[in-house]
């Protein structure tokens, strides 16, 4: 379960299957997905005709300006809301089924820890919900996960006693508790300062490398997307839609040194350009 993955090479990813039905096929697949919200007096087209596929074991980021529907996208994948059109499958199943089989781990922008539970009890919460293992087994698993995120010594601390970065690490440990097939991350470090965020990115990368899960991250931070991902999808607003896709052919394992790499700069600049162009497109069509 914790076998370290092979460093992903660019070749492997260029050949990665992107169509449903392939052997080892897509972990997440959206085809022609649109989402409308009925607001008082008007209708909001939050997402328009979005198609994408995330391969098993891949780390994919979605970037876009605020209001482009990227959080909506994640909540659709989690089955928390239903699409107005199109289909979503998680490993070939509808999201609701994947959710029932506890194949999804969700990390929110706010840590969303339950304040009356200790760090350990927050991590084991979803194991309790899933009635998985005995109390002792859940505790052992919880401590393992806290060890993984470097908070073994804070197992008995309540969230209020933890810093923002620590709270987020507890949130990640909790999301991993059920060994999810897919980790959904909704701007998990958006509220952190730059230094803490970079440190958290590094930790997330280490954790992901050890857990062999698929990750779908939503962020508005270009550097974060490049640093973490195999592939970055760019969205534009009004209506929320996909405008570009960029492969990140940077070698793994990655370290914070990457942040000074020419190629990293090049990719970040390209994505920033794409983000601005997406915005301009909107301006012209409106």
């Amino acid at each position: 379960m914790s076998s370290p993955r092979q460093p992903a090479t660019s070749a492997a990813h260029d050949q990665a299957p992107r169509r449903p039905g392939h052997p080892g096929g897509p972990a997440v697949s959206l085809a022609g997905v649109s989402k409308r919200f009925r607001l008082p007096g008007r209708e909001l087209l939050a997402l328009h005709d979005v198609s994408l596929a995330v391969t098993e074991g891949e780390f994919v980021s979605v970037i876009g300006p605020s209001g482009c529907g990227k959080s909506t996208l994640l909540r659709l994948v989690a089955g928390l809301i239903e699409p107005s059109a199109g289909t979503i499958t998680i490993a070939g199943e509808p999201p609701a089924q994947a959710r029932a089989r506890r194949e999804l781990g969700f990390v929110f922008q706010e840590p969303t820890l339950l304040p009356w539970r200790t760090a350990l009890d927050n991590v084991t919460l979803l194991l309790e919900v899933a009635r998985r293992g005995s109390a002792a087994e859940r505790q052992r698993r919880g401590l393992e996960l806290l060890e993984l995120v470097g908070l073994r010594d804070f197992a008995q601390a309540r969230p209020a006693k933890l810093s923002g970065g620590m709270q987020r690490r507890v949130g990640i440990a909790r999301a991993l508790a059920l060994d999810p097939r897919i980790l959904l991350l909704d701007e998990p470090f958006g509220a952190l300062d730059e230094i803490t965020r970079q440190r958290m990115n590094m930790e997330l990368l280490n954790i992901w490398t050890h857990q062999a899960t698929t990750a779908l991250l939503v962020t508005h931070n270009v550097g974060e997307a490049v640093f973490l991902s195999d592939r970055v999808l760019v969205m534009a607003t009004n209506p929320g839609r996909m405008v570009a896709e960029v492969n990140v052919d940077l070698p793994r394992p990655r370290s914070l040194d990457l942040l000074e790499d020419q190629e990293f700069f090049g990719l970040s600049a390209r994505l920033t350009r794409l983000l601005h162009r997406g915005d301009q497109d909107t301006g012209e069509s409106a």
């Binding site: 919460l125 919900v129 959904l184």
Partner: peptide
């Protein structure tokens, strides 16, 4: 968000209430 967390993890409404 705590409610969404529970729902995303497939919790029953009783579990959501109790936890």
């Amino acid at each position: 968000q705590a409610l969404e967390l529970m729902r995303a993890a497939g919790a029953s409404s009783w579990q959501v209430f109790r936890c």
